[in-house]
Design a protein around this nucleic acid. Sequence first.
DNA 1: CGGTATCCTTCTCGATACTG
DNA 2: CAGTATCGAGAAGGATACCG
Lengths: 124, 124
Amino acid sequence: MRDTEQPHVDPSVIAPAHRELLAQVLDRWSLQVLDELCDRTLRFNELRRAVPGVTQKSLTTTLRRLERNGMVQRVVTSTRPVAVEYRITPLGSTLQDLIDALLRWTTGAMPAVDDARARFDSEE
Amino acid sequence: MRDTEQPHVDPSVIAPAHRELLAQVLDRWSLQVLDELCDRTLRFNELRRAVPGVTQKSLTTTLRRLERNGMVQRVVTSTRPVAVEYRITPLGSTLQDLIDALLRWTTGAMPAVDDARARFDSEE
DNA sequence: CGGTATCCTTCTCGATACTG
DNA sequence: CAGTATCGAGAAGGATACCG
């Protein structure tokens, strides 16, 4: 409330809206869900089975947020009873590329991270 | 510790250790701290002033975790009284590149995200 | 200056039960 | 099948006070 409407943004501060978006889109279940949806369309319970450990509530929350942010599309078919399909959007695909980069980074960095952790934990 | 040395990783499940690392290193304050340290060395209270809103406790926690993961180095000079400097490591720099990519993505995606949100919020 | 320790509030998230 | 509603435990995180 102290910096609303500033003419030029302080480059040293990451925009709260950007942080919020990253948080909404890179959280625990979103990563897994997007990973599942990257190359196929899945229904709610298929997705639930594909993502081990996710509860119905968390999956619903995650999908609603991803849908609201334009990362996935929710398609309801008026069959019997009803089928709900989730698919990734073009915007979601650009995010998927980034997630891939993140996971590649963790893979490459993990040995060095493990070393750093071992050193940190052994000292003091 | 249960999936070390597995011959083939299940591609549908993101390794918990990788998710944990991303969570530890991409959280709210870590993003800001790494952003501050990317091109200069700062002392604790300088860093505290540079990152608006962070408490002493949160900053300490964040720095310890980044240090443990090998992203920043803590340098204690035995002057009077004592000075503690934090600087980014080479490993931390590789992460910084990724964070830059994330922030560039948010900048590019934000208009589409705002549209998607407006559409989602107007319907039902 | 650069932290720890403690309290306390908030928020997340899982478990469970119920619905169109 | 695809959710919503409600509850409670636990973790995250701020405020405050104190220490070497």
